[in-house]
Design a protein around this nucleic acid. Structure first.
Lengths: 348, 348
DNA sequence: AGCGTTACAGCAAGCGCTTTCTATCCAATG
DNA sequence: CATTGGATAGAAAGCGCTTGCTGTAACGCT
């Protein structure tokens, strides 16, 4: 029914071995023979059987990309950049590799499941994007998995995630702490003394680091933080909306709201507006990531730009072995403060 | 080096066949034996070899999802919904399936390449999302590929894309024409007579259908369209920004701008604002899709909501054989007009 | 007690490809 | 002219798993 290598071989009057070599192009084959084989492939409309080839060669051309939420442009942009680097040449048959984007939904279990699935497929490489869950048993399980993958020859790269010691994984870490600090320093510099903070979900490295940066800035300025000023929630606009109303209820005198990311900040803006507060005259707002839509907010969002596409591209190249890993296997990617209309001096 | 089925079998004192059956759970195995095998699997930390299994069973647990742009939430949302339905139970070993999200970047060649790659991997199903390229040779090539995939047992589902006759593919088509018409009718009802239209890239079904709907509404209202009122561009904010400046240059008297989608509309808003025009007092703006950020635009965007997540979920279930395909293999998914602040009566 | 069943378990034959080792041919060399 | 070696091509042994078919015990029935 389906065309196999043997069929092509028969048609081209050569042995299966020769056809395989023509297709993989890693062994000398006379030009005339090659041409005959290629013609047969074409005539029969032959398509290599991936699993069989992977089994025989003990490697596959799958590359896994783990993301927390594929519907979030933060991950979409990174995934896109990673994938663009993966498709390129440098591999076997045609050099095409299949990027597998896996959506963990932020769930530790699914993350582990996907890692196992990828291990099962003998993936050529795996890139994990975004923050990790800070839960000891889970973190250990993931680390163990990464180590196994590495031992099996799968290249593991972390993009926008803290290093995973002893796993052999290359890490391109975002400087969330530094960015968070810079952002809050900017607000403090503007004169703000009462700042609300809408943090992401607890138990996530990204959440913690950004919050730590914020607090470091407060501490450095001698501002004592009121516990009521911090609210946790998911990384989406809805959470930002609700958290802002909560913050306003707890302390109506806040003059600035710092959000865990841009989507959250957008929700915060909506809540403030509905509460009759002007941005930035009454309350300043700041986000994080600088996603494409942030500049279209009204007023445009002050935020910290993360070079998502650049970092993703680099991670992709490293995963494909087309770029040297950073010394020590760890590199820190810094963000850049983008001051725009949503932040200004406090009222009064 | 790596643990194989045989190792597990030896450890559990059974034959490899038995281990395989325990793992696949599709053949009676005595409880005591099963337990022994499972323990051995656990102790040896055995992970099934996907390729080998796929080869022997002649099926794989990969499901392909083709998207035009993974960084665009339009696709991210659909992909996320599809994937959520795919992960579920109902399959082999653990019922886990690996969703492969492939980013075609809107390129016909890459689309074909990915389809071949998926065919090579003997994917269990393939879901193609978003509009198709309207280019005869390419369309024919894709159709042929889809037919082949179908013949090889791969279930093919189109989500948000026109039907592909004679390919056996199930189609969940968005009613772009109807949505576009309704949107423009709304604007006309408001009193607009001079409407600019920022269309997507040419040669795409989505672009054409939305534009056709727009024109049908104009025609029905007896409005003669000025060719200067239509500009083509990519489906992103930047294109919307530039196209709007161009429209304004061509005809400063426009009172409304209809964009191909929400991102484009956001860019249009930015351009209008920078040109000193108020929305909607001076110019009304409308988008399409109703992506999450649209409601946060200021003013909130009037648009057509497409049930992306629902359609994706349904496509995913159909792809997994967990839901009956629609009669005739074709279903039309309608959009819903969302009237918000960005549209109002024309000035004067 | 004898026999048909039922419920498991194992054998062994592939699945379609890669790759090592070996064979062949022919040009170049002494 | 015999010999050596480079360039190709083929034979065949797997890669690790699934599954049809073949036992074989234990069970229930008459």
């Amino acid at each position: 029914m389906t065309v196999t290598l043997a069929d092509v071989a028969a048609r081209a009057q050569v042995s299966p071995a020769t056809v395989s070599r023509v297709l993989n192009g890693n062994y000398p084959v006379a030009a005339s023979t090659r041409e005959r084989v290629l013609r047969a492939v074409d005539e029969l409309d032959y398509v290599l059987n991936g699993p069989a080839s992977a089994l025989a060669a003990a490697t596959s051309d799958l590359v896994g990309i783990l993301v927390n939420d594929i519907a979030d442009p933060f991950f979409g942009i990174m995934a896109s950049a990673i994938q663009a680097e993966i498709g390129g040449p440098g591999g076997r048959a045609g050099g095409e590799r299949l990027a597998v984007v896996c959506n963990t939904g932020g769930s530790p279990e699914r993350e582990l499941t996907y890692l196992t699935l990828l291990q099962r497929q003998r993936a050529a490489a795996v890139v994990l994007t975004g923050g990790a869950v800070e839960n000891e048993p889970h973190a250990a399980a993931v680390a163990a998995k990464l180590r196994k993958l590495g031992e099996a020859g799968t290249r593991v790269v972390l993009c926008g995630r803290p290093p995973a010691p002893e796993t052999g994984a290359i890490a391109l870490t975002f400087d969330n702490r530094g960015g968070g600090r810079e952002l809050t320093e900017h607000l403090i510099g503007l004169g703000h003394r009462r700042l609300g903070y809408i943090a992401g979900p607890e138990e996530r490295t990204t959440t913690r680091h950004r919050l730590e940066g914020h607090r470091a800035a407060l501490a450095a300025a001698g501002i004592e933080e009121d516990p009521r000023w911090t609210v946790h929630g998911r990384y989406d606009r809805r959470a930002g909306y609700e958290a802002t109303l909560e913050l306003l209820r707890r302390d109506p005198s806040l003059t600035a709201v710092v959000a865990a990311n841009d989507s959250v900040a957008l929700g915060a803006c909506a809540a403030l507006r509905e509460s009759g507060l002007r941005i930035p005259e009454d309350v300043s707002v700041a986000g994080f990531d600088d996603l494409p839509f942030s500049i279209d907010a009204v007023p445009a969002l002050t935020t910290v730009r993360l070079p998502l596409a650049e970092a993703g591209a680099r991670a992709g190249r490293i995963a494909m072995g087309r770029e040297e890993p950073p010394p020590g296997g760890i590199a820190t990617v810094r963000g850049e403060l983008m001051v725009r209309g949503s932040s200004g001096g406090p009222r009064g």
